[in-house]
């Protein structure tokens, strides 16, 4: 069944005290799909993304990954997370380790890859993002754009099925945004399933298969980039787009 969803979210709610960060989200994501989530600040985009790998524990609802509910206490969260790479706004590289160590630590400890195999894989990925010569540098010696490219390949070293991106270019100087988006675009082209929270509308138009607009903890509108940007149905969507485009 090729139409079977890789991830299915049902009635997902996340409350922080009285604040409803997510107020009932239903969503289906298919394999190989690139989904871009947009929306105003505080609308719950990060919370939704972080719920998918349980960095936030939802208050209510269900998240099925390949048909298994990951909110079931019997699901091994750590194994689930190995299959879901995540890239953060502020890179979150490990500052006390070299780039190579940043990339090989998890595959060696968790997938029990040999140092040689993990290193070979890391060098291959570094080559792909043009940073092979920085393998033995420390994160603080890199530019923001370089750090984020490393963060992406660090996640890829775990061979994830899905990649989550939470505003991967928002902390970058403008001239470095392109190099990171290029890496992401290549990844999408290779068929990686991606969920991207971003304010880069150009990326959404060019790379996404689907655009989701969130506001106040709800999905207000969704569609293919073409129909979404050309004919937004909802007033709030139109209002938001008029501000960012």
């Amino acid at each position: 069944m090729t139409t079977e969803a890789l991830i299915r979210v049902e009635g997902l709610k996340k409350h922080f005290g009285s604040l409803k960060a997510l107020d009932g989200i239903d969503l289906e994501l298919r394999k190989g799909e690139v989904t871009v989530i947009i929306g105003p600040s505080g609308s719950g985009k990060s919370t939704l993304l972080r719920s998918l790998n349980l960095l936030e524990r939802p208050t209510e609802g269900a998240i099925y990954f390949e048909g298994v509910n990951i909110l079931d206490p019997k699901t091994n969260i750590n194994l689930h997370r190995q299959r879901m790479g995540m890239v953060f706004q502020h890179f979150n590289l490990f500052p006390h380790m070299t780039i190579l160590r940043n990339m090989t630590l998890a595959p060696m400890k968790l997938l029990h890859e040999t140092p040689a195999a993990a290193t070979e894989e890391a060098m291959r990925l570094l080559d792909r993002v043009g940073l092979q010569d920085r393998a033995n540098a420390y994160p603080s010696q890199l530019s923001g754009g370089q750090k984020q490219r490393i963060a992406i390949v660090r996640a890829l070293c775990m061979h994830p099925d899905v990649m989550l991106f939470d505003e991967p270019t928002s902390a970058l100087d403008p001239e470095m945004v392109g190099e990171v988006l290029d890496v992401m675009q290549n990844l999408a082209r290779e068929g990686m399933t991606m969920i991207v929270v971003t304010h880069e509308m150009g990326f959404a138009k060019e790379v996404a298969n689907r655009v989701i607009f969130m506001d106040e903890g709800l999905i207000v509108e969704e569609g293919t980039p073409k129909e979404f940007f050309a004919h937004p149905q909802n007033a709030r969507t139109r209002d938001f787009l008029s501000k960012v485009l």
Binding site: R81, M84, F88, F94, L105, A155, M158
Partner: peptide
């Protein structure tokens, strides 16, 4: 840092 570690599966 904790989130990055956990997201890798540690």
């Amino acid at each position: 840092q904790m989130e990055a570690g956990r997201s890798l599966g540690f």
